[in-house]
Design a protein around this nucleic acid. Sequence first.
DNA 1: CAGTGGTCTAGACCACCAA
DNA 2: TGGTGGTCTAGACCACTGG
Lengths: 249, 249
Amino acid sequence: MPARYEQIAAELREAILGGTYPVGSHLPSEAALAARHSAARGTVRQAVALLASEGLVGSRQGARRVVLRGERDQLFGEPYDFARWAGALGHRAGGEVIGRRRRKASATEAVRLAVCAGEEVLSMLRLRTLDGVPVLVERAVYASWVVPAVEVLEPGCESVVGALGETAGLAFRHGEHLIDAVAAGVQEARLLAVRRGSPLLRRRRLTSTAEGRPVEWSDDRYRAGSVVFATRSPGGVNPSLAGQDGDLR
Amino acid sequence: MPARYEQIAAELREAILGGTYPVGSHLPSEAALAARHSAARGTVRQAVALLASEGLVGSRQGARRVVLRGERDQLFGEPYDFARWAGALGHRAGGEVIGRRRRKASATEAVRLAVCAGEEVLSMLRLRTLDGVPVLVERAVYASWVVPAVEVLEPGCESVVGALGETAGLAFRHGEHLIDAVAAGVQEARLLAVRRGSPLLRRRRLTSTAEGRPVEWSDDRYRAGSVVFATRSPGGVNPSLAGQDGDLR
DNA sequence: CAGTGGTCTAGACCACCAA
DNA sequence: TGGTGGTCTAGACCACTGG
């Protein structure tokens, strides 16, 4: 049973996306919403704060809340799942595992995954395709404590995170993303069918359990022009200086 | 005079960044904080919610709040300001305006800036340097209603957004970002001193007033390796398919 | 089990906006 | 000037955590 304010937020969200409150129009006042739902004003405020954090509505002291957007963003805050993402957009996801092996964690990986340096992790290289076109080279490293669960999966498994959620009953969320541009190396050029040195969009991402325990640290490189990352500001995008290895300084 | 909850948040933030509460340690309970500040628990909750939204602390029902990070992220949720950003990182920002002219808004720009198609906007091209090294080509378009305020600024003005905030008393925030990788064109290669076709990190961003009125729509291209964009998940990063022009589909 | 955060209520005062 | 959102208070009950 969702919380009361989540129900109210859901109802308002559907009304906005459904056109009851068009972009630019005003939401009912907090007092009116409270009366309609027989709830306290504070509860209604929690609901609209949720919508504001999603960028759907804006507010100014003294004036009614305004609807800012009328369409849903894809995949709100959900953990990254290539297969599901492609499916939701009406495309066919494919791919193959190029390599998979156990090895010791590097220093950086140990920090990212919050494991001891030198502990054994599972390293995996895969190529992802969209409607048969190669678009992504993924280099993932899994924390030692999930390695057993990952190793029993089919090598052709399309979604490791999705499968872990089902078999191990784990809930995931994303932690951090580091996004930059790099030039394609020899291997990447071959896999993605581009020239060496051509631009790739790199996203390094950390997937954690809902409690904040790191599960997967991955370096994903997309062929330029195939995807765009979109974010809204609260939760923000922070430019940072990069060092020679492309990591933060 | 900042609000009470902002004062409490600021005090806690300083304590965290100053090492009083190291990463992994627990914050005092809400009840304790409320007593210490002679405030109601609700007010304390507003304060810690602010810290949580900054990613500094995490929480689980039933357990004390945990400190997640001990360092400040640059420019939290603040509107983008190249000069201030560089300064905060201890680097010297420079640059020059390459071109500035009025012209009619394109269809895309009209949508982004929420102005009528064909309305007159101000287009500006600038090169930004960091410690003398060129890192960024910025192509900004300003909405018609701020053009007068922008045009009176010195051409050498380092921060348009900052200057507008002072002269026009406007508060800004960022709306959306679209991030991808592109190959350097002839002009960009020359300005950034890289080879044509080499990778650039592109960020298109929309700056709006606090009420959600669009002010500036900009296409920023960074030399690869100079910056990394970092985001945390709530507020999320959503991969989307790109069309031929790199815009969303 | 006692303590904690998550939710909710029912008031209150203020600054600000629009008419 | 009346309505609105922003802030704050002082309670309450619950679900969950930890020892």
